[in-house]
């Protein structure tokens, strides 16, 4: 995993010198900036590494389809909609995002997303299912490099509520902290081929409950670290 991080950060470092055109300007969905177009759309993948604390010897990454739409409401206000899809378990979020520039290079945004996750899998031959809600207030600071490569640092608070998991119709667990943890992301959005923009991001998730692990029924009351890689293409 660390090798992947090293590779991605090296890529990030080198890409700060990449070429671009005016077509790419502020096209990234993560970069906090007033909306200069009706909508921004990105499709990609997230890869979340499940920590040993949760999965024990099964140390693996879970990929998820990541679809992200930013819809202009006014110049500074946008509706941020996102879907994380793994078929057997999915997360849908939506919420407002307000962004403004601080100066020629820096800009910020604040927002709040409300999410609903749901899933169903067979565990030891038993049909288990789960669902729950998230509320995610967030703050992002963006820096535009000389050649319009966009770097975003984003922090989110994770609030989990309404978590219910079942085996057949028997409720298994529902007690988790409301203030479940926080996430910190560093995201690079930079010109790719044509007028596309590539997103490469690293997200550190510190939480006592990560929705993709609902089927493990863990009971920890301490934050566990889930590293996540985000790769996307802004169309």
């Amino acid at each position: 995993m660390k090798l992947i991080f090293c590779f991605l950060f090296t890529l990030l470092f080198l890409n700060t010198f990449a070429q671009d055109t005016t077509l790419h300007r502020f096209k990234g969905v993560f970069f906090p900036y007033p909306m200069d177009r009706p909508a921004k759309f990105s499709v990609g993948l997230t890869f979340t590494t499940m920590p040993y604390d949760i999965t024990e010897e099964l140390h693996f990454q879970i990929p998820a389809l990541d679809v992200h739409l930013l819809k202009r409401v006014s110049k500074k206000l946008a509706l941020d909609m996102r879907a994380n899809v793994q078929v057997v378990q999915n997360l849908l979020t939506a919420g407002p995002r307000w962004a403004t520039t601080l100066n020629d290079r820096f800009s910020i945004s604040i927002g709040n997303e409300v999410g609903y996750w749901f899933g169903a899998v067979n565990t030891e031959g038993i049909r288990t299912r789960g669902h729950g809600f998230q509320n995610v207030p967030h703050l992002a600071i963006g820096h535009r490099f000389n050649r319009r490569v966009l770097l975003t640092f984003r922090a989110e608070a994770l609030m989990n509520f309404g978590i219910k998991t079942y085996a057949k119709d028997t409720e298994l667990t529902s007690d988790y902290r409301l203030f479940g943890g926080s996430t910190y992301s560093l995201i690079l959005e930079q010109p790719f081929y044509g007028n596309k923009v590539l997103t490469i991001g690293l997200r550190g998730i510190y939480t006592d409950f990560f929705w993709q692990t609902w089927s493990l029924f863990e009971t920890f009351d301490r934050n566990i670290f889930y590293p996540q890689v985000i790769i996307g293409l802004n169309l």
Binding site: K2, F5, C6, F9, L12, F13, P51, Y184, L186, L202, G204, Y206, R222, N223, I224, F225, P227
Partner: peptide, 20 residues
Amino acid sequence: KSYLPFILLLVFTSCQELID
């Protein structure tokens, strides 16, 4: 500025060892 990503990488990958 050039070293910033690497400093962040170090912070990012070392946090999980602190919990005990």
